[in-house]
Amino acid sequence: MNVKSVLLAVLIPFAAYAQGFAGLGTATQDFATPQRPAEFDFPADHGPHPDYRIEWWYLTANLKDEDGTDYGLQWTLFRTALAAGEVDGWTSPQLWMGHAAVTTPDAHYVTERLARGGIGQAGVQADPFEAWIDDWQLAGPDFDNLRMTATAPDFAYDMQLTAQGPLVFHGDAGYSVKSAQGQASYYYSQPFYGIEGMLSLPGGDIPVTGQAWLDREWSSQPLSEDQTGWDWFSLSLGEGKLMGFRLRQTGGSHYTAATWIAPDGTTTPYPDGAFQADPLTVTDVGGRDVPTGWAVRLPDRGVEVEVQAINPQSWMSTSIPYWEGPVTISGSHQGRGYLEMTGYD
């Protein structure tokens, strides 16, 4: 297979993937779908689920250097399938995409890797845990102790992660409903990683420490056909953590859900309408109007905060473009977090 045919084999499916939100709102065809009650099997469920259409291992981190400067870091591995199941070789229906980014108050560095499954270029194994694409790795003896690396022409990082709390499960014990029509995913997180290591930026190497949050999610149709994008928040608020999302629908309505995470990992799920997020500040990001400041409320927990991007220009100029970056939190609670927004392209 020559270089041109290799590129076509990898990039053409991703072009189709990008046109329709990875098919997230289309019929499931022959793929498996999440069912209630959610039942998890660890460590196996840290690994891939090739009978489902879409899956990700999604890590973000809020970091500081010795001078107190804020940084954000992202490492994400996406798997999407053209058909259920896995086979070895170039006929594999599994596609892999990796995103890595570093955000500073003044710059946003981003890079991407694409791979076809079945040839060893990318993949995930559960025990011992290893997720990789090319030379990028998120790996360790178990899910609680990981080393994370990524390289790009203008940045690199090498980080150690140590879990300081338990896994948490969103929605109904890990069954996360995404629409009034009932579309759902399996969704759990490890929001308690301590992280430390080295950022390598054009100005030199920077030792950093902080907190990281890893999301695991898989499904085959997590969105309804009338949903156009989402605004997702992971907020560390001192006395607890908050995951909340707002799914935008045609006609201007929204579907929301949230999870309150106590310091000991105890969770309280919140249904549609309990979590509120409204844009405060809109920024021109490469000709796009993107909300980079938000009013976020969870009245049941007394949360009424303002969320502001550390760098409003944190655009991910990848095959599937979106906004992703670290945020500050002020108001009823103080803290740091991450914001992801899709569908603004």
Rank of each mutant, 00 (worst) to 15 (best):
T91G: 15
V87I: 09
I54K: 06
M97W: 15
K64T: 13
G85F: 07
W57Q: 04
P13I: 04
W75N: 07
H46K: 00
F14R: 08
V110G: 09
E86P: 07
G68E: 02
L59F: 02
E66G: 06
P37Q: 11
D30R: 11
D65P: 06
A100I: 13
R36N: 00
A18I: 03
D106C: 01
I54S: 08
W75T: 04
H49C: 00
A61I: 07
E55D: 11
R79D: 05
W96K: 10
T80D: 03
L63D: 03
A101L: 05
Y17V: 01
G20N: 11
G89R: 10
Q35Y: 01
L77V: 03
P43Q: 04
T76L: 13
G47Q: 00
Y71F: 15
Y109N: 07
T80P: 03
P50I: 02
A61V: 10
P13M: 08
A18L: 05
L82C: 01
D88P: 08
F21A: 14
H49F: 05
E55R: 07
D45Y: 06
G23Y: 07
A101V: 06
L8C: 12
V102M: 12
H46T: 02
A32K: 11
L73P: 07
G47M: 05
G89I: 04
T69R: 15
L24Y: 11
T76C: 09
A84G: 09
D41H: 15
Q35N: 10
G47V: 03
T26N: 13
A16D: 14
A18H: 09
V6E: 13
P43R: 12
G20Q: 02
V10W: 04
S5I: 10
I12H: 12
G89N: 09
L8A: 15
L24N: 15
T111G: 07
Q94K: 00
